[in-house]
Write a protein that binds this DNA or RNA. Structure first.
Lengths: 139, 139
DNA sequence: CATATCGTTGTAATTATAACAATTTCAAAA
DNA sequence: TTTTGAAATTGTTATAATTACAACGATATG
């Protein structure tokens, strides 16, 4: 899979380029995690001068632009996820890891109407025990 | 619809009865909102002596017992919802009201396996503009 | 009645996030 | 090159939700 260029993405969205934005986006692209603001900070604070305020500002900016999704799968932290293909998420209640779920049998909803409400987005969160923890528990 | 008796519910779950628990559950049963800890406090703090600590303790207890569901549809607050029929939720980005969504075309998922993960619960959150706000905006 | 357990309270601590004023950056204009 | 001004970033402070915990109180059991 070709990793997209953060600078290109920013340009496509008419967002002026700064080192901080590039670094944050770069990290979101290369990680397979669904990092919190905190994780982003500790991962890239050595690569560029940046503060927490910038992280939050930038993530809000990216969210508005549709570059990232905020996940509220986890009770007390917001996780961020770069938008590629639409997909859903699974949180393991044992190891707390978040997995991407692609290709659900259904994925309609958006641009739809339910009970008269106009639906713009839908988030589906699954909770349970992940395959890794299932394996471990068997032993 | 017959409103269930809070004391009966507590007994069924082997939870010792206290005034606070009864009052909290009573409120959850009679309200059509999806209150936050805060709302619960301000609604019933005059009916019984109770503190925030008790609200949270009780809500966690109820959640574990399966009497209520924690909703994380809203970025920075937890909303609580009494468990009756399984259903999903819609949050209006204009008026912030949460609506119950019953009878989605699909509702399988639980006790299922996806990508090898064992699914125990699924939460579906819809976001958009509710029918009331749609009406208002038309005028 | 004595005592052990459980529930509640009140307060203090913690954590994530937001707000804000001061400073810096940087590109365009002069 | 220098100036200028908007936008971005910083560091700090504030806020709000939630949790932790020690002390107190009620209750049930023997």
């Amino acid at each position: 899979m070709v990793k997209p260029d953060p600078r290109v993405i920013l340009k496509e969205h008419n967002i002026p380029i700064t080192i901080q934005r590039v670094k944050i986006l770069e990290y979101l692209i290369r990680t397979n995690e669904h990092p919190t603001a905190d994780q982003i900070y500790s991962e890239i604070s050595d690569e560029a001068i940046l503060s927490f305020a910038t992280i939050y500002n930038t993530l809000h900016l990216f969210t508005k632009a549709g570059i990232v999704n905020e996940l509220h799968i986890d009770k007390d932290k917001t996780h961020y996820d770069i938008v590629r293909k639409p997909h859903d998420h699974f949180l393991c209640r044992e190891c707390q890891k978040i997995y991407d779920i692609y290709d659900l049998p259904i994925q309609p909803f958006t641009n739809d109407t339910i009970d008269g409400h106009s639906i713009e987005r839908a988030h589906i969160y699954f909770y349970g025990i992940c395959r890794e923890c299932l394996k471990k528990n068997k032993r």
